[in-house]
Nucleic acid binder design. Structure first.
Length: 477
RNA sequence: GCACGAGUGGCAGAGUAGCUAUGCAACGGACUGCAGAUCCGUGGACCCGGGUGCAAAUCCCGGCUCGUGCUCCA
C-alpha cells in the first residue's frame, strides 16, 4: 500500500499494511456527558479522511469507534438533572451522531458502548488477574505496572520515574487501593447507587481504559492495524490499553500503527469551558456552516495543532465559496466524467495522491483542489465544456469523495433549483432595470446608471459588463 | 523538572538537501465609463549560532522561543 502514516509508537512515518481480509481501524470516541465540541469533530474528521482515502484506493477497511457511555462525568450530569445516566449518554450520543452526519463524516462500521461490552471487559480482567498482571485492592481491581515495566512510555517516552516526580498532587486521587500510584483501575467497586454490574470481584463498573481493549478484541481480535484518537489520549489511556491487551493475549504490538490527531486552540489559547472560548459543534456550524467547518478543520494536516480563529474561518469560507460557485456555475455535478485527457488535471491528481499518501497531508490536498478550482474558473470563462466536465469529475472524486467538502448531488441540485427559482422570480424586473441602465449608460448618465446598479445589487444580483453586454447572476447566498 | 512536537514571506500554512507550494492581503496589468467579479503577472520567507556537503529552510550539534502531555480530556 502506498500510504505512509506517522506512527506515534516508532515516531516515524511507516507504510500501512494489513494482515486479514480488511484493514482494521479503531478510534477512541467520546464520553457523552455534554455537547460535543469542535475538538471531537476534528478527531472524527481525521479518521473519516483516513477511511475515505483508503476506500478510494480500493483498500477494504473496517472502522470502529466507541462511546464511553458510563463515567463519573456522565453520572454527575445525571445527578444534577435528576435523571438516569442513560438519559444523559443517549442524549449526547444522538447529538454527536447528528453532528457527524452534518459534517459529512461517514458512519463507522460499529459504535460499541461500554455498557454493552461488560462481559468482554470482565473476561479480559479475569485473564489479567489469572496471569498475575492485575490484583484486587480495597476499592477495585488494578493493573500492576511492575509486571510489565518495559512497556511503560511506549507512546510518550516517559519512564516510570518521571511520572512519579512530575505528577505532583494529582496522583493521590486516583484510587486508594493501589500498590503503586502508577497502577490503573480495571474495575471500580460500586460506591453509592450509581450504575453497576456484577463481577467476580463484586459489583462495580469498568475503569476507563479496559473498555477499548475489550472492544477491539470483540470486533477485531487480539490486535488492530491502526488505533488512535486525540493526542491527549496517548497517556495514560493508550499506554494503558497496550498494557492490558498485550499482557492479556501475550502479543505485541497490540496496534501496528498509533495515529493521534492534534488539538485545537482558540485564538492561541487552549480551548476550555473555563476560558469561555469553547465551541460546540452546533455553535460552530451555526456560525459558519457545516462544510466550511469541515474545510477549516482539514486546512492543516491532522497532526498539527489548529488555531481556530477568524482568519482560518474566513479563509475556509472564501475557498469553499469559490469551489461551490464553480460547480453551480457549471450547472451542477455531472456523472463519471474522466480527466485523463487533460495534463494539468493529471498533474494535480498526482500531487493530490502523493500528498494524501504522505501521512494524509490534507493541506497539500486542499492546495491542489484550489488549483483545480482555478483551472475550472478559466475553463468556464472560455466556455470549454470538455475541460469543465473533467474538472467536475476530478473535484467530485477528490474534493467530494475523499475530502468530503462538496455537498451531496441532491443538495447541489436543490441549490441549483433554488437559484433557478430566484432567477425566474426576478428575471423580468432585473432585465427591465438592466435595460434602463443600458439607456442611461448610452447617454453617459453615470449617476443614474450606478443608482440602478445599486438597486439591482440590493436584490442579491451581481452584474458583469463585457463586450457582449451585461450579464447577471444570483450572488452566492 | 521530564517527555513529545513546532518555529517558513504582512497573515494562514505545505515543503525536508538543488526545480513556482497553495490561499488571503499588497502591488502591476487585461476587461470596464467607474466599480465588482474573473483572469494574467510581480515582489517578498525559511528563529539564532556553529558544523557536514559541490549544494542546507531541509541533515548534525548547541542555544532561544512557543505549544502539548505528565492519571478529567478528542
Amino acid at each position: 500500500m502506498a500510504l505512509r502514516l506517522y506512527d506515534t509508537g516508532s515516531r516515524s512515518k511507516r507504510r500501512v499494511e494489513y494482515q486479514g481480509d480488511a484493514l482494521t481501524i479503531y478510534a477512541c470516541g467520546i464520553t457523552p456527558y455534554s455537547d460535543s465540541h469542535i475538538g471531537h469533530a476534528r478527531q472524527a474528521i481525521a479518521f473519516d479522511i483516513l477511511v475515505r482515502w483508503l476506500r478510494s484506493q480500493n483498500v477494504p477497511v473496517k472502522y470502529v469507534t466507541n462511546f464511553t457511555d458510563v463515567s463519573d462525568t456522565i453520572i454527575e450530569a445525571a445527578e444534577k438533572e435528576g435523571v438516569d445516566y442513560t438519559v444523559i449518554s443517549n442524549r449526547y450520543i444522538t447529538g454527536y451522531r447528528k453532528s457527524m452526519k452534518r459534517l459529512n463524516v461517514l458512519d463507522a462500521d460499529a459504535y460499541p458502548r461500554v455498557t454493552e461490552s461488560i462481559d468482554g471487559i470482565i473476561s479480559m480482567i479475569t485473564t489479567l488477574v489469572e496471569k498475575g498482571h492485575a490484583y484486587q485492592g480495597d476499592d477495585g481491581v488494578y493493573f500492576e505496572i511492575e509486571t510489565a515495566p518495559e512497556k511503560y512510555g511506549y507512546l510518550t517516552g516517559q519512564t516510570l520515574e518521571m511520572v512519579k516526580s512530575g505528577a505532583g498532587g494529582r496522583v493521590d486521587d486516583t484510587g486508594i487501593g493501589k500498590r503503586d500510584h502508577r497502577d490503573f483501575a480495571l474495575w471500580k467497586f460500586e460506591k453509592s447507587d450509581g450504575p453497576s454490574w456484577e463481577s467476580p470481584w463484586g459489583r462495580g463498573r469498568p475503569g476507563w481504559h479496559i473498555e477499548c481493549s475489550a472492544m477491539v478484541y470483540e470486533h477485531f481480535g487480539e490486535r488492530v492495524d491502526i488505533h488512535g484518537g486525540g493526542s491527549d489520549l496517548m497517556f495514560p489511556h493508550h499506554e494503558a490499553e497496550i498494557f492490558q491487551s498485550e499482557c492479556c493475549f501475550g502479543i505485541a504490538p497490540f496496534a501496528s500503527h498509533w495515529m493521534h490527531n492534534g488539538m485545537i486552540n482558540v485564538d492561541g489559547e487552549k480551548m476550555s469551558k473555563s476560558l469561555g472560548n469553547f465551541w460546540t459543534i452546533t455553535d460552530a456550524i451555526d456560525a459558519v456552516g457545516e462544510i466550511v467547518l469541515r474545510y477549516s478543520l482539514i486546512n492543516a494536516p491532522y497532526r498539527q495543532p489548529i488555531d481556530f480563529n477568524e482568519v482560518l474561518l474566513k479563509d475556509a469560507e472564501l475557498n469553499y465559496r469559490k469551489l461551490l460557485n464553480c460547480i453551480l456555475n457549471a450547472g451542477g455535478m455531472t456523472d463519471g466524467t474522466s480527466w485523463e485527457k487533460y495534463e494539468k488535471l493529471l498533474i494535480s491528481e498526482e500531487a493530490f495522491v502523493s500528498g494524501m499518501n504522505d501521512d494524509l497531508n490534507t493541506r497539500v490536498a486542499i492546495a491542489e483542489t484550489q488549483v483545480v478550482v482555478k483551472l475550472m474558473g478559466q475553463s468556464l470563462r472560455e466556455q470549454n465544456r470538455g475541460l469543465t466536465d473533467a474538472c467536475i469529475g476530478w473535484l467530485a472524486k477528490y474534493a467530494g469523495e475523499v475530502l468530503g467538502i462538496i455537498p451531496s448531488e441532491k443538495e447541489i441540485s436543490l441549490m441549483m433549483d433554488d437559484r433557478a427559482k430566484k432567477r425566474s422570480n426576478i428575471e423580468k424586473e432585473v432585465d427591465d432595470l438592466i435595460e434602463q441602465r443600458r439607456v442611461a449608460r448610452s447617454e453617459k448618465n453615470w449617476t443614474e446608471a450606478d443608482r440602478i446598479r445599486d438597486v439591482i445589487e440590493k436584490m442579491g444580483v451581481s452584474l458583469q459588463d463585457d463586450d457582449n453586454g451585461t450579464h447577471w447572476q444570483i450572488t452566492g447566498d
